[in-house]
Design a protein around this nucleic acid. Structure first.
Length: 843
RNA sequence: GCCGGCGUGGCGGAAUUGGUAGACGCGCGCGAUUCAAAAUCGCGUUUCUUAGGAAGUAUCGGUUCGAUUCCGAUCGCCGGUACCA
């Protein structure tokens, strides 16, 4: 009936085992106080980035990381750990809302349907998740705690002396006014040019802009009053506390880069009676500052501009204002205008002209620079174009051209700095600036505060109220949480920067005096802390109980091992670290970091080597692969493709390859009868076979090593070699084959479980312990030595494993081929590496 | 420009402290089985070759008895970031 018989009947047992595991709660990980909890067991918390349940369903990229963590989790479990491996849904967010608008359904409905589809797909891959711990960021019981954490941020400030967050109530006790307190809250309202997307009708965080632009959305700068989170206060700690984490160096570098720490100095210039401060990383070049540049948006521009220059300056400012960020970035040709004003260089009293130019950004430092054209490429270009003076103050090493040269060297034309190396000149000028009250040492960061409000419907509302008369804001009472969005017919973005909730008058009006905040939180809010909730998902008194925190978390990084896409290197991973530190500072958590160890799987590309996309038609649907080859084959293939952290192209032929391997394992135990039915072959016997014992134990060693170093592709190669040996043998001892099945079970749990049960083993493989390596089986009595002459392989000789150096040398020199190669030459030296080789140096 | 990563057969890749380069898989070729095919099993598969060898891990150079591995320079590709002062 079936046109093509399957190489092994995965379709008949995969779903059976999935149901079995699910019904028996095989992978339940009980926590403190729960039934079946065993405090003596060590714990292991392994976490996947929870997916955003899109309408498109699971992508083949998802099971890559999920299979890796599943293998490690199952391996740890077989080694006696109480493994927490949970799954949940990052279900708020713009795409969900856009999809809902498009289909005319409420996002809660479409989200639920998408979640059900995702859950089905994940369950069909046999992942050992504890589904009792499932979390969903859009669940009111979850929203409640997201909002509670927001209120912690809102009700705290950053104490600079102690470098940590503290409750604002401390400031109230010190007699601070409400206005003063509002200035320092970690969640604060701020009017500034922000990233406004006209196409999406919302603002975006700096970190998100590129991603949405890539998807074709428009983003422009626009001044708006928005809620911000004061992440910049944590800039230094976010760099320092990253150091001890077991993260890939590249990801750490990405975060450091984004935070962008620069050491330098602030220098104050007198400009027509105003103090203008600039930041510079090269205070040693202060004598070479021959002009000053302000950003066009700088607040003092109109005040200092002289009458004759007024028209030109105003024209330039408005030209810049109308340019989008993109145009401004693309246009590398320097432009600017002379304000006519002069600044006094504090170090030598020189009068230097003040210009405005759009190569100076308002968002970094003070929005003003001292220009040192001799030693800065941008200032050099600008000075050349506008004929401004260029004064060399650093003599670079060697014969490098000093013009526009930014390299360090020796100070010249710099008064008391002359003759000093750049490093020493920096120290001396900073000392001078401090002494003369003209500046100070300064550390500057690129990191901006986090724009946290969105003008959308499908997100957590801010639990905040505004006084209609005074305009003062305040947090709602914790007992009123969760605060859910009202039911609305039409929640489309309105273009109104207050968001669609503004149209829901019943909901907005909290009382006669008070009105609700109408902005909502970004998708990141829920994902910032979900790893904590998994530990105690049903707790109604705490976001996580201290007992669960102590049991599941680590002091030096809460989660033992976190796996997920590197596209979140400067988004989710940075935001989570920030929230975790705030919660730690406020005494709600004991650890400083959320993720002790982190790993980012590579991207799975299309078969054509391009990134998978609908438009290219190269998308692989995991459901189709499971249908055709089974879940084990998909899992195994994704692990066999290559190193986990590398980007790699999909190849359906490769899926067939691992599928054949699984079928080969199946056929070690089973064969077909004349009707085409599978039955035990009788090849598995009681007995012993030293050769197979050796390769089986070699495989234990290889697989263990490979799992511990996340090199799953080599684990699978090892198992393939072992299976090839079983295939070639006439009989396979049962104990060895059962050992092999245990090794295979984290990778292909369904097949391993099925064969195990067919061999009348009653206990589930996943309940069994990992095989113990017997090293004695690996020792050889005879080994092969390679013999080289002048480093080139010339012979292989068999010698006893414990051969002495002298005997090895003798045996090598006795070999016929070796004799031929050293014939007529003098042996100068013989290197013997025990157990490996003999190298004869002769000429 | 700056930061990070990567260059090994026809392809994905292996070689864990420097010690047999190309494991394992894909593809391809040959053979067995079959009436035939599929499936399966076995053998072969870096290149050149005067068949003894020679060359070979992006390129050039260095250290070493010995380098895919360590060091230096160059080229190429990928990712991040960018008038960040």
């Amino acid at each position: 009936m079936s046109e093509k018989r399957k190489p092994y009947p995965f379709d008949q047992f995969e779903s059976k085992w999935q149901s079995h595991w699910s019904e028996n709660k095989t992978y339940r990980a009980p926590g403190p106080g729960e039934e079946g909890f065993d405090a003596s067991k060590p714990k292991y918390y392994i976490l996947d980035m929870f997916p955003y349940p899109s309408g498109a369903g699971l992508h083949v990229g998802h099971p890559e990381g999920y299979t890796a963590t599943d293998i490690v989790g199952r391996y740890k479990r077989m080694n006696g750990y109480n493994v927490l491996h949970p799954m949940g849904w990052d279900a708020f967010g713009l795409p969900a809302e856009q999809y809902a608008i498009k289909t005319g359904q409420h996002p809660r409905v479409t989200t639920e349907a998408n979640i059900n589809n995702f859950r089905r797909q994940l369950q069909e891959l046999g992942f050992a998740y504890d589904w009792d711990r499932e979390v969903n960021t859009t669940d009111p019981k979850y929203i409640r705690w997201t909002q509670w954490i927001f209120l912690q941020l809102y009700n705290s400030y950053f104490c600079d002396e102690d470098q940590k967050a503290k409750p604002v109530s401390d400031l109230e006790e010190k007699g601070w006014t409400q206005e003063q307190i509002d200035e320092v809250r970690l969640a604060f309202i701020h009017e500034a040019p922000v990233n406004w997307s006209p196409s999406m009708g919302t603002v975006l965080a700096n970190e998100e802009v590129q991603e949405w632009k890539d998807k074709g959305e428009t983003v422009e700068r626009r001044p708006l009053r928005q809620w911000m989170l004061r992440i910049t206060k944590y800039a230094q700690r976010l760099i320092d506390e990253l150091e001890p984490l077991e993260w890939p160096e590249s990801i750490k570098a990405l975060q450091r880069n984004w935070i962008g720490r620069s050491e330098g100095a602030e220098v104050t210039f007198d400009v027509e009676g105003n103090d203008i401060t600039v930041f510079t990383t090269r205070p040693d070049t202060l004598f070479g500052a021959t002009y000053m540049v302000l950003a066009p948006e700088h607040s003092l521009v109109s005040a200092i501009t002289t009458a004759p220059q007024k028209e030109a300056v105003e024209a330039y400012v408005s030209a810049c204002a109308s340019k989008s960020d993109m145009e401004r970035g693309l246009d590398k040709e320097k432009t600017g205008a002379d304000t006519g004003a002069f600044a006094i260089n504090p170090v030598n009293g020189e009068k230097i002209p003040v210009w405005i130019a759009d190569y100076v950004m308002m968002g970094y430092g003070s929005g003003a620079i001292m220009a040192v054209p001799a030693h800065d490429t941008r200032d050099f270009e600008f000075a050349q174009k506008f004929g401004l003076p260029i004064l060399q103050v650093v003599q670079p090493h060697g014969d490098q051209d000093w013009q526009g040269c930014t390299n360090p060297g020796t100070a010249i034309n710099s008064g008391f700095l002359d003759g000093l190396k750049t490093k020493d000149a920096k120290k001396k000028i900073i000392y001078w600036l401090v002494e003369n009250r003209k500046g100070e040492k300064k550390i500057q960061f690129k990191l901006r505060d986090w724009l946290f409000s969105r003008q959308r419907y499908w997100g957590e509302p801010f639990p905040l109220l505004w006084d209609k008369e005074t305009g003062q804001h305040s947090g709602v009472c914790e007992s009123e949480l969760p605060l859910l969005q009202p039911e609305m017919e039409d929640f489309k973005p309105t273009g109104d920067p207050r968001g669609p909730l503004i149209n829901c008058t019943d909901w907005i009006n909290y009382s006669d005096k008070l009105q609700r905040e109408t902005n909502t939180m970004p998708q990141w809010a829920g994902s910032c802390w979900y790893y904590l909730r998994y530990c105690d998902p049903k707790n109604t008194d705490h976001f996580i109980s201290p007992e669960n925190e102590d049991y599941w978390g680590n002091e030096d990084g809460f989660v033992d091992f976190y796996v997920g896409g590197k596209e979140h290197a400067v988004l989710h991973l940075l935001y989570s670290r920030f929230w975790h530190k705030v919660l730690n500072d406020l005494g709600h958590l004991k650890s400083k970091e959320p993720f002790k160890k982190y790993f980012a799987p590579g991207l799975i590309m299309g078969e054509d080597g391009q990134k998978m996309s609908k438009s290219l038609g190269n998308v692989v649907n995991p459901d189709d692969v499971v249908e055709k080859y089974g879940a084990d084959s998909l899992r195994l293939y994704e692990m066999f493709m290559g190193p986990l952290d590398q980007d790699k192209p999909w190849a359906m032929k490769g899926v067939e390859g691992v599928h054949r391997f699984l079928a080969k394992v199946w056929r070690v135990a089973c064969s077909e009868d004349s009707e085409g039915r599978w039955e035990l072959s009788g090849k598995i016997v009681e007995g012993r076979n030293d050769d197979l014992a050796k390769i089986t134990h070699q495989t234990i060693k290889r697989v263990e090593g490979a799992i511990n170093s996340l090199r799953f592709n080599t684990a699978i190669s090892g198992m393939m070699e072992c299976a090839n040996a079983y295939t070639a043998a006439k009989e396979v001892p049962k104990d060895l084959f059962l050992t092999f099945l245990k090794l295979l079970s984290p990778f292909a749990p369904h097949l391993a479980e099925e064969i195990n049960s067919m061999l009348e083993e009653s206990e589930l493989l996943s309940e069994q312990t990992w095989p113990v390596l017997d090293e004695s089986l690996l020792v050889e009595s005879e080994i092969q030595l390679i013999v080289q002459v002048n480093g080139k392989l010339r012979a292989r000789i068999q010698v006893p494993a414990d051969v002495s150096k002298e005997d090895a040398e003798k045996a090598a020199l006795a070999d016929g081929n070796i004799r031929a190669h050293i014939d007529g030459k003098t042996v100068r030296k013989v290197i013997v590496v025990p157990g490996k080789l003999v190298n004869i140096v002769a000429n």
